[in-house]
Design a protein around this nucleic acid. Structure first.
Length: 265
DNA sequence: GCTGCATGATGAA
DNA sequence: TCATCCTGCAGCA
């Protein structure tokens, strides 16, 4: 279930748990056999997340690029891993075991390709050095609806379909409004909420945007699944703030949800 | 058992 | 705008 927070979390956890030693790499499924062989037995020098992309640098300048796409998943085992399923594209075994299934991308890249990949991405709210002005300028340049624009990874890197509905709800911005017409305070609020919300998602491993007290709970971690979000997939249900029915339509090729009262056009 | 969908992205038309 | 790729699982017969 990958938006940017998932990738950054994987980056952090794998870095901590795979350990400093040589990694046994293989492709049980076979589709990444040649690539796995080229990193097998090498140490990992770094793991970095950029938006929804995960980049590993192995000894000997071998760079591994993984993008989970819609259905890709990691599974990590500290000890006693089960045997990999037949669909396991990549197995990494160090102090822990990591299995990768269903990625959209799993490939080795050279440094120039890595550079180009990173350059085409917008600022990443989970990168402490990210430059929000690049985001603001990206919005100012586009007349496309804001709801489509924040899914564009070259404008802001890491936002997916859940966060786009939730961030626009939290900022009270209607998804159909042209990106360029957002006010400066709106643009800034959007960036700040992206930073806060994705950081929270990275920390906990789940997306919970609802303020617990708003639904009569005391802790975020206690919220049951059906109470965690304000808009995403809540079509026809009452808005948690005002009771108006949440609406749903297609925007940028994906479904989006919003409260027509809390997010006026 | 089969179908269709899902927190994604690309390339062709 | 549409088809396609990737996998797992819910919902249905």
């Amino acid at each position: 279930m990958p938006e940017g927070h998932t990738i950054h979390r994987e980056s952090r956890l794998q870095r901590a748990r795979l350990g400093p030693g040589p990694i046994a790499a293989s492709s049980p499924q076979g589709r990444f056999h040649a690539g796995a062989q080229r990193i097998d037995g090498r140490r990992i020098e770094s793991i970095d997340a950029v938006g929804k992309h995960l980049l590993y640098r192995f000894e000997g300048r071998r760079h591994l690029h993984i993008h989970l796409g819609l259905v890709g998943r990691f599974a990590m085992y500290a000890a006693d891993p089960p045997p990999p399923s037949p669909n396991t594209r990549l197995s990494l075994v160090g102090d822990a075991t990591v299995y990768l299934t269903g990625p959209a991308t799993c490939e080795l890249l050279d440094p120039l390709q890595i550079k180009r990949l990173v350059e085409r991405l917008g600022p990443d709210p989970l990168d402490p050095d990210a430059d929000p002005d690049r985001f603001f300028e990206g919005l100012a340049r586009r007349t496309t609806p804001i709801g489509a624009t924040i899914l564009d990874q070259s404008v802001i890197a890491g936002i997916g379909n859940v966060y786009r509905s939730e961030l626009l709800f939290l900022t009270g911005i209607h998804p159909d409004r042209p990106a360029a017409e957002l006010t400066a305070p709106e643009r800034e609020a959007l960036w700040k909420l992206a930073v806060d919300q994705l950081a929270e998602g990275e920390r906990t491993g789940r997306i919970v945007t609802v303020a617990p007290r708003e639904v009569g709970a005391t802790r975020r971690s206690e919220l049951p699944k059906e109470l965690r979000l304000y808009a995403y997939k809540r079509w026809h249900q009452p808005c948690r703030r005002c009771g108006t029915e949440i609406t749903q339509w297609e925007l940028g090729g994906r479904l989006i949800w919003a409260c027509p009262s809390c997010q006026p056009r």
